[in-house]
């Protein structure tokens, strides 16, 4: 079964993203929302881990949260942006959703 993992915490404050990345399996996806979008920053202390995960899973970020925080130009290559409708689509495309709060 495929899982959509949502992460809503900055990786610089909490370990939700780090923890989540330990459990993602091929075919699953990670969606960064709220402060979780800071996990998509390029050149940060988390970038290597996120890039590593992208070898197996797709990493998305909620565009509204990226824009709100002014980081659209600073994201890792390969992170895909979605709007809320895209978020809904991702939920439907995976068998389960697991929130890393």
């Amino acid at each position: 079964m495929s899982v959509l993992h949502t992460v809503n915490k900055s990786p610089f404050e909490r370990n939700g993203l780090e923890s989540c990345l330990r459990y993602v399996k091929k075919g699953s996806s990670v969606l960064l929302i709220e402060d979780g979008v800071f996990g998509a920053l390029a050149g940060s202390t988390t970038s290597t881990a996120v890039k590593g995960a992208m070898a197996n899973v797709a990493v998305y970020a909620l565009e509204a949260d990226v824009l709100a925080r002014g980081i659209k130009g600073k994201l890792l290559d390969g992170v895909k942006l979605v709007d809320y409708a895209g978020f809904v689509d991702l939920v439907t495309q995976h068998d389960t959703t697991s929130a890393w709060l």
Binding site: M1, R22, Y23, V24, S28, T96, T97, L101
Partner: peptide
Amino acid sequence: SRADMAGIIEQNDVVFSF
């Protein structure tokens, strides 16, 4: 183990996160 836990999470229909 962590590897087994990853499998456990994936097997469920509904995940309540707290």
